[in-house]
């Protein structure tokens, strides 16, 4: 328990947060990694997911790939890519993107697929083009589930980005592994606590956004 108190004291010291390798800079890096990885994954997964959900083509393979990637141990993925890409940001970024793609993909195809068929038929009967049906009907109605996929991706990436420091990158994993190697338990604990608080904060924010979206949709329909 003393170590926990020391860790909290460390977090309450302003000097902990300042400087190029301070907790503040590490937190910012961590958020940058997360943002970049989720954005790249969304760029890959959203178009494919929306297309699969809209047309129903390739649903089987998409479900299978999602399952297989989820079973991959992330540490194995990161270290394997790191041996080929060398130390730095490339390896963790590749691994984080691979990790985030299945959740976003699953959210996109099940979101679009969850829209009632009569609603979609009615939209095309009114003369909407395929493109209009997708953007004006399927995406808005499936948005809570699509956001749900992004939420899961952010959650996994924030947690796993900690491992980036294991293969020589920054982020909140850097003070964590420094504490681990130098037996500096207060630092190790402090960094762990920051990651936990960050992950839970993001989760709560996303849950609120999803709830607001659901309410808004129910209001219009």
């Amino acid at each position: 328990m003393n170590q926990l108190i020391e860790a909290v004291e460390l977090l309450l010291t302003p000097e902990t947060w300042t400087g190029a390798t301070g907790m503040g800079a590490r937190l910012l890096q961590h958020l940058q990694y997360t943002g970049l990885a989720v954005a790249l994954a969304a760029l890959i997964a959203l178009p494919i997911g929306l297309a699969v959900g809209h047309s129903g083509v390739g649903r089987g393979p998409a479900v299978m790939i999602t399952g297989v990637v989820r079973a991959l141990p992330t540490l194995g993925l990161i270290t394997l890519v790191a041996l080929f890409a060398g130390l730095g940001l490339t390896a963790p970024m590749v691994a984080l993107v691979i990790l985030a793609v299945p959740s976003i993909l699953a959210g996109a195809y099940s979101g679009v697929g969850s829209v009632d068929a009569p609603v979609v038929d009615a939209a095309s009967a009114q003369g909407m083009s395929t493109w209009q049906v997708l953007w004006k009907v399927e995406v808005p109605l499936g948005l809570p589930i699509i956001i749900g996929g992004l939420r899961l991706a952010v959650l996994q990436v924030v947690a796993t980005a900690t491992l980036a420091a294991y293969v020589g990158s920054g982020g909140l994993g850097a003070p964590l592994f420094l504490g681990l190697r130098t037996y500096d338990y207060p630092l190790l604990l402090a960094a762990s606590l920051v990651v936990i608080v960050l992950a839970i904060t993001l989760e709560v924010v996303f849950a609120l956004v999803q709830r607001v979206l659901r309410r808004a949709l129910r209001g219009t329909s």
Partner: peptide, 23 residues
Amino acid sequence: GLLYAMPSLPLFIVLPIILGTGV
């Protein structure tokens, strides 16, 4: 369900303090 939001590595580190075990 919110427990799942807990990142695994930090949890492996914080738990010993609560349980009184070694890292």
